[in-house]
Design a protein around this nucleic acid. Structure first.
Lengths: 145, 145
DNA sequence: GTCGAAGTTAAAGTCGACTTCATGTCAAGG
DNA sequence: CCTTGACATGAAGTCGACTTTAACTTCGAC
């Protein structure tokens, strides 16, 4: 049985493509964690790569680190998360992501549902404010991010 | 013939739902423009509402003001833009938007194509880096925004 | 034991997209 | 005329998500 080979900072930056400064930042923000050598250097478990993949994917589509943090908080802390655990998280974002997809499709298809319709009552428009749910995120356009 | 009734700052903020400070900012950034009264106050043409609707929709799905600026620059300056002009812009974003939609769908469907596949070679992964086109936007995850 | 690559920290800087602030001017009804 | 609410300006502040800088320390191959 091979017991937990830990990864160095350099290995993680190479394999995740993320900057060391970003990893330290994520650690300060409690999105990832690391053990330390006696000398104080970080050693990462391999699972961190999966977390980073998730963070990257979420950030990539415009979700905030805060949203990511909330999602990650729901992973089991006792055992190593399974694929099902990860899938559950993404599924729980279904509504949120669907709204965003709709807004993108409307924009792609010529804004027909907003600019095209001539409504221009931006405050209530479905594309400006998909699903009327944007209100939860604050006034106006701050739906994404 | 009613000749160009101009809109005041207050009217535009009410009808667009945007803050006055945002309108001034957009003007500094050359995204919109206004004429001035002799006293120096802004008067907007009605077309500004359509521009603002467009800006709002684009911002809403995560596009940057810089991208919006480039798009708006392609509107005819001589005549008032038609619906076709606006549609052409959104259509030209088709590829860009499609990639983003795909990334969202993958995330919604459980990240099966990235976290699920076990590849974890984030730097090249299709979901992290849709269409391999993200490279154009700089290193790594800075695809959106 | 030596040495260079790799790692550490706290603090400050950056960037986009606005907002807030302090202070002063305009517009229009009474 | 006068007042009051709407509007103007430049400068500074904010927020998220990192990066950069400066000044060390550790690791590990030799």
């Amino acid at each position: 049985m091979v017991t937990s080979e830990l990864l160095t900072m350099g290995e993680v930056t190479r394999r995740s493509g993320m900057a060391a400064s970003a990893l330290r930042y994520y650690e300060r923000e409690k999105l990832i964690s690391a053990t330390r050598t006696t000398g104080g250097q970080r050693r990462y478990e391999r699972g961190v790569l999966r977390r980073l993949a998730f963070i990257r994917a979420a950030r990539n589509v415009g979700l905030s680190l805060e949203e990511v943090r909330e999602a990650l908080a729901r992973l089991p802390s006792s055992r190593t998360p399974t694929k099902a655990d990860w899938t559950a998280i993404s599924r729980s974002w279904r509504q949120r992501l669907n709204e965003q997809i709709q807004a993108l499709e409307a924009l792609r298809d010529g804004l027909d549902s907003c600019i095209g319709c001539g409504c221009l009552s931006l405050a209530r428009c479905r594309i400006s404010n998909p699903g009327d749910s944007a209100a939860r995120y604050g006034v106006g356009a701050v739906y994404l991010r």
